[in-house]
Design a protein around this nucleic acid. Sequence first.
DNA 1: GCCAACGTTGGC
DNA 2: GCCAACGTTGGC
Length: 152
Amino acid sequence: MAYWLFKTEPDVYSIDDLANEKSGYGVWNGIRNYQARNFLRDQVTQGDQVLIYHSSCKPAAVVGVARVVKAAYADPDQFDVQSPYYDSKASPENPRWYCVDIAFEKRFSQAVTLADIKQHPELQDMLLLKQGRLSVMPVDEQHGHIIEKMAG
DNA sequence: GCCAACGTTGGC
DNA sequence: GCCAACGTTGGC
């Protein structure tokens, strides 16, 4: 069972928005970065755990956990001319971008901030600290456990 | 609001 | 296919 970290800007879509989805799950779409796309398309599996990370806010932090309920499928927004995520080079026969469905699992009583992670000696190897701009990334299982423990 | 990191675009 | 210019992300 793999761990992932998904970033989101809480102003756009927060963990509370995910928790409040009437359908019981949220569509994780709008990923338009090839490295993140490849993880999403090729490796994110139903049942995987996802650390939800709020970015571009004070403080940036891992705020809770979700679970993948549906593996990658073509992101419908890439075909929607009205959508900001529209991509003229993508077609249903040849999709370029993918999304997954995730279900809210829990919100941490205590968010684990980026500063907390930077201070923890055992978390120095996290991709989060090495590649700041990646929005979907794998997390070592040990690292995931440490973060869950820090959240109390 | 600034700026570093880094991905993408486009001219050659 | 190289690389400069440009745009975006995201922490501070």
